[in-house]
């Protein structure tokens, strides 16, 4: 069943897969196709980054996975939601029932200016049918862990960019359950805030182990956060090159300055069109960190 994805799909039995994309075809009407027979998988509890130049349809891919757009062909399967999803680190799936659903964190935070931090984060639970009182108390209990302690009643316009992204992340996580789609969540932040947020995400994720598919333009960010980096380089996207990052966790930002990481970065850049380094088209880099 993995015949279409020799590079990106051989790591697991079906029941361990959180997301399985098979032979995906998609084109906007009247435009050149964006995806042609694209297949890839995400295992339960994996952090995978998707690295691609602009215009290759990364956000469109997310919209397809999130169910906002119907694919022209192929199949997108999300693992069914379980009430006590083991892979979700104790965050029960939303009350919306069986249908697999991805939590989508858009590029802009899209917080509702008329709702407080608490009510913004709870909106997915409310839509899933939870009473607003239960939703609020669930969110309230999670705020400290997400670096939002004491911010429950603050309004979005009173928050810094980093805080807004934390609320947005928490909201998506509560709404999605097992798979989280993060679309360049830190791209609008200044460099210092961004590093802080990357480390914050590392901490939260290393504790929770939700499955994350992370879109970014930033190679450092991808390598720092991910178990695997998927790289799309040509349109239409039909295969994804893959680089595995076997760096032990917990990770920290200083690891980016070590020679093995720099070597890894060079390889990733080589896989991107117009990148530096030798033009290796498809390769899997396995790398053991120095201890």
């Amino acid at each position: 069943m993995n015949h279409a994805a020799p590079d990106a799909g051989q790591q697991g039995r079906l029941e361990e897969l959180c997301l399985s994309v098979r032979n995906l075809n998609f084109a906007f009407p009247g435009n050149k196709p964006l995806f042609h027979h694209l297949s890839f998988d995400l295992r339960e509890g994996e952090f995978v980054s998707l690295l691609a130049p602009s215009g290759l349809g990364k956000t469109t891919l997310f919209r397809l996975i999130a169910g906002l757009l119907p694919p022209d062909g192929g199949e997108i399967r999300l693992a069914e939601q379980r009430e006590e999803a083991a892979g979700c680190g104790g965050v029960p799936a939303s009350a919306s029932g069986k249908k697999g659903r991805a939590g989508y964190m858009p590029q802009r935070d899209c917080l509702m200016p008329w709702r407080s931090v608490l009510d913004n984060a709870a909106v997915g639970l409310e839509i899933g049918g939870m009473s607003s009182r239960d939703a609020r108390s669930r969110v309230l209990a999670l705020l400290p862990e997400f670096g939002l302690e004491g911010a429950a009643d603050r309004m979005p316009h009173e928050l810094s960019g980093g805080m807004r992204q934390r609320v947005s992340f928490l909201r998506s996580m509560l709404a999605g359950g097992r798979l989280l789609l993060l679309d360049e969540p830190f791209s609008a932040l200044d460099a210092m805030t961004r590093i802080g947020m990357q480390q914050w995400l590392l901490q939260v994720w290393e504790k929770r182990r939700v499955t994350i598919l992370f879109i970014t333009h930033d190679v450092d960010e991808a390598l720092l956060l991910s178990d695997r980096v998927l790289i799309a380089s040509e349109a239409p996207v039909s295969r994804l090159a893959e680089v595995e990052v076997q760096e032990p966790r917990p990770r920290s930002y200083d690891r980016l300055m070590t020679p093995p990481f720099i070597e890894l970065k060079r390889r990733v850049l080589g896989l991107l069109p117009g990148g530096i380094g030798p033009p290796e088209r498809m390769c899997t880099v396995e790398w053991e960190a120095e201890r």
Partner: peptide, 11 residues
Amino acid sequence: GIGELLRTMGA
């Protein structure tokens, strides 16, 4: 953007 987000939540 907000509408789209709520739609992904099944609204």
